[in-house]
Amino acid sequence: MATIRITKQFSFETGHALYGYDGKCKNVHGHSYKLSVTVIGTPIEDATNVKYGMVIDFGDLKKIVKEEIVDQFDHATVFNQNTPHVELANELKNRGHHVILVDYQPTSENMVIDFAARITSRLPHDVELHSLKLQETESSFAEWYASDNT
């Protein structure tokens, strides 16, 4: 059976700030992120299986990414918990804002690494994460490939 890659795309709005950065991104700002998730596997060959012919049901992949990424990061503000931004984060939380504290600088590069781990942990054993593309603006994105991270 052939090895096939399938991709599903997602979008979400997230704010962040890069503590210690020497440019405009040190300020709290947001992006309309686009996330492309590509998995790889072989289509199910068992004709009695309701998922016959699929590597993974797009609906199942959507559920994983929605729960692990979109539902958590959409309309949230992300700060590095190891910076003075934690004070701002706590103030925002106290005022009812959705804030996520992470243990990394919330760049697209680090976010895509985080997302890869979250998605990989939820995939069926016979389906592998092939790549992620996290687009921050129309012309700027970070990519993660499993082959680069083995």
Rank of each mutant, 00 (worst) to 15 (best):
Y104I: 14
G96W: 05
V99W: 06
I119W: 00
G59A: 09
L123F: 05
T42I: 08
D22W: 01
V102G: 03
D103M: 04
I64K: 06
H16Y: 11
E45A: 06
F79G: 01
L134T: 08
E68R: 14
Q81D: 12
S11K: 14
K62L: 07
Q81L: 12
K51W: 01
F73A: 09
T83Q: 07
V65A: 05
D71L: 09
T7W: 00
T150H: 04
K133G: 02
D148K: 11
E109Y: 08
S11F: 12
P84G: 05
K93M: 14
E67N: 15
V86D: 10
G41R: 00
I113M: 14
A47R: 01
N149V: 03
T48F: 00
E68H: 08
Y21R: 13
E67D: 15
V112T: 15
T38D: 08
E109W: 05
L35E: 00
G53S: 06
D71K: 11
N49T: 00
G23C: 03
H130R: 05
I69T: 05
N49Y: 03
T3K: 12
T7K: 06
D114L: 12
D103E: 15
V28S: 15
A89R: 09
C25N: 08
C25L: 07
E136P: 03
D57A: 05
Y33C: 10
N27S: 14
L92S: 04
D103R: 07
I6K: 02
E87D: 10
S147M: 04
I100H: 01
T83D: 06
L132E: 04
N27V: 03
S140V: 13
S108K: 07
S139D: 13
D60I: 04
T14E: 14
H125F: 13
T38K: 10
F141I: 00
N27C: 12
F73Q: 08
W144Q: 09
V70D: 04
K133Q: 13
V37L: 03
D22F: 02
K24R: 03
T120N: 15
A2F: 11
M54N: 10
T83A: 07
L18W: 10
S32T: 13
D114T: 06
G20V: 10
H97I: 09
T150Y: 03
H97G: 02
D74Q: 04
